[in-house]
Write a protein that binds this DNA or RNA. Structure first.
Lengths: 117, 117
DNA sequence: TAAGCATATTTCTGTATAGGAATATATAAA
DNA sequence: TTTATATATTCCTATACAGAAATATGCTTA
């Protein structure tokens, strides 16, 4: 995972553009109108998004229709996966803690759900 | 989803710190050594991470042990969810396209898997 | 209380980049 | 071929922020 990929989405207007494009492909003008941004800025942001692989463009007459590409999101998803193990461990530890409380308090019945340690 | 959250991870050294903390809690000095960073910079990055909720600290004698918190990652995960629908639609459209090719080519058997349109 | 280690904070500087304004390019229509 | 529309590009400026160096704070032990 490169920080560069995240930095592209870390700019508020750029993130807005990406979120807008979730609804489907849009020409530049539409994006300007909906987000109340000036055209040159939108073009520049789209250029950055394009270089990072977040969007692709399809010319249509004088318009240029931009749409999202899934690959970078999948890359982020894959990266997040390496943290899911960490979450699970966290929950295991919480689980251990709750079970310990339970045992300390009443020492009567064993655990009812999975526990690793 | 706030761009602010992503911007915190978009800084390379900060991302490195986060990735390091996946392996477990670490005192500041350890982080400095392992990442070859100067202590004041690490403290400042940790401060940013802390304010954004990515880490929490537990003092231990003169040391301060930092560890990851799961909430911001869950937030990112939730945000990514809203793009999974988009992926699915993308795959559906690819599916449609492949099916259409297939039909155009041989017009014999119907589809064998889910199709929305 | 003094001394030592671990960490935090402050100040300064350089750099990257987002936005504004003007202009260039490309396609379509008259 | 001129004009209009849609988008891209260039140049400039201001701001945010990461790193360096120096210093401050806090905890521990003698």
């Amino acid at each position: 995972m490169k920080a560069k990929l995240l930095s592209v989405l870390a700019e508020p207007n750029r993130l807005d553009i990406v979120e807008l494009l979730r609804n489907g492909p849009q020409p530049v003008g539409e994006i300007c109108n909906k987000l109340k941004l000036h055209q040159p800025q939108v073009s520049k942001h789209l250029n950055v998004l394009s270089k990072a692989g977040f969007v692709e463009v399809h010319p249509e007459a004088q318009q240029r229709i931009y749409n999202l590409r899934i690959e970078p999101f999948q890359e982020i998803d894959t990266w997040l996966n390496s943290y899911r193990k960490f979450w699970k461990d966290s929950f295991d530890r919480l689980d251990d803690y709750l079970i310990k409380l339970q045992e300390d308090e009443m020492k009567k019945k064993g655990k009812s759900h999975g526990k690793k340690k």
